[in-house]
Amino acid sequence: MPKVTIDGQTIEVAEGTTILNAARQIGGELVPPAMCYYSTLKGSGGKCRTCLVRVTKGSEKDPRPMPKLVASCQTMVMDGMEVASKSDPSVVDARAAVTEFLLINHPLDCPICDQAGECHLQDLAFEHGKSNTRYEFERRTFEKIDIGPYIKLHMTRCIMCFRCVFTAQQLCPERVHGIIHRGDHAEISTFIEKSIDSEFSGNVIDVCPVGALTDRTFRFKSRVWFLNPMDAHRDCPTCSGKAVVWMYGGEIYRVTARKDKYGEVHDFICNTCRFHTKEKGSWTIEGPRDLDRHSVISQNHYEHGEKTVR
């Protein structure tokens, strides 16, 4: 089993583990942020470049450092590898640069965005962003599109992580969802704006790190931080039936899949559970869900004053 040292902490991991997953096994501050990698989607990752790290020692056999920063979600650990994550200023610089690049065409419409509070880009900007922008041109905008009766696509907010494309390819039987155009005018689209009608299409909402894909049955109903997330389950013939119901009082406002610490879903849920089962009686409520993701929503930092805001 290869041993890897990340920011001074050594861990032994299974053969074929990526640096990012090894870092997640250690946990804490040294875990690189990831906007496009999604452990349950095959082929995802390598695109957003936020998880860049510096490999200062290749391996025990070949100790040469790697010449460039590498995407930690794609690079396998070797025995004796040494990695600098947050401890290397050039890595922090590169992440700040990527954050700036992701934000130049982002509308920053968080006050009216349903994703606000659980948005990965918000978290990334919170940690690595600057308070003002150097970009002085008109931002790229698109018309909002309804893809089917349940999903709203707001391309203007998209950061092109490709997660929804992989979801559509891997969970839905027919390929209906992909990328058109290229460069900074590339956009996510369905085949000539046809609706996605697979029973698992709703999962593209959960994998979206930003507010580009939102739940039309929940749009503008409530801010996520006013809702109480509860673990719940039901007998579902299609999916595992394990979900999180977001409640206000006795009412279920929305249903999502269960996300782990890094915002990743391991049990994808079906559209019936997500969009059609909003009566409290249909669910067995297990208890409040603990959100340990270090996002704005889980921190509750604002009421504690300055010192706890990182």
């Binding site: 695109k47 957003c48 990527v98 690049f101 992701l102 130049i104 041109f137 990328i179 290229r182 460069g183």
Partner: peptide
């Protein structure tokens, strides 16, 4: 280069367009 960037990774997709502008 801004026109020919494939749009896959963030620095190139956004950066080439920014430099062009």
């Amino acid at each position: 280069y801004a026109h020919e960037s494939c749009g896959q990774c963030s620095p190139c997709r956004e950066g080439t367009g920014w430099m062009e502008k």
